[in-house]
């Protein structure tokens, strides 16, 4: 009986560098991953400012109003004309009151496109004021020079 001197050749290549790189990549993606629900939308191009301060801490009761360049308000996933946001804000206020919170402590975050009309932004603010909201945060892209 002839002894088998060699079987099918198995090539073993060193996996260590690949696993090293893969772990590095995973670490990188874990660090840059942001789980916070940033209300960003590519339809809104915020105006840039070098003095826009990043929000200190978490806004307690945030209400985000996104205003597009052509004057629509992107709210809860749909685009509404500016003059029709009152009803949605009224519901928002009722929800805040039902949760036992004060609507005057809510912050309306205005994410308006840089090309939007100032009149539309002011109208959004006015409608929010009529619903009893007092605190506003005009959001801009932070761009240091």
């Amino acid at each position: 009986m002839a002894a088998r001197t060699s079987g099918p050749a198995t090539t073993e290549f060193d996996m260590t560098p690949m696993i090293d790189v893969t772990f590095q990549l995973i670490t990188f993606f874990m660090f840059v991953l942001n789980f916070s629900e940033a209300e960003q939308d590519e339809r809104i191009q915020l105006p840039a400012s070098q003095l826009a301060k990043p929000a200190e801490g978490v806004v307690e009761i945030p209400i985000t109003m996104q205003l597009t360049a052509d004057g629509g308000v992107l709210y809860a996933g749909e685009i509404l004309p500016v003059n029709q946001i009152g009803r949605s804000l009224e519901q928002e206020r009722e929800v805040i009151i039902a949760a036992g919170k004060d609507p005057t402590l809510a912050t309306v975050i205005v994410r308006a496109d840089g090309r939007a009309r100032t009149g539309d932004v002011q109208q959004v603010i006015r409608i929010c004021q009529e619903q009893g909201f007092e605190r506003f945060a005009l959001r801009a892209l932070y761009k240091p020079e």
């Binding site: 915020l46 400012s49 301060k53 009529e130 007092e134 605190r135 005009l138 892209l141 932070y142």
Partner: peptide, 12 residues
């Protein structure tokens, strides 16, 4: 992109 706010307190 990093964003920032201008806080405005403006009652009616």
């Amino acid at each position: 992109a990093p964003e920032g706010d201008f806080d405005i307190r403006m009652p009616l």
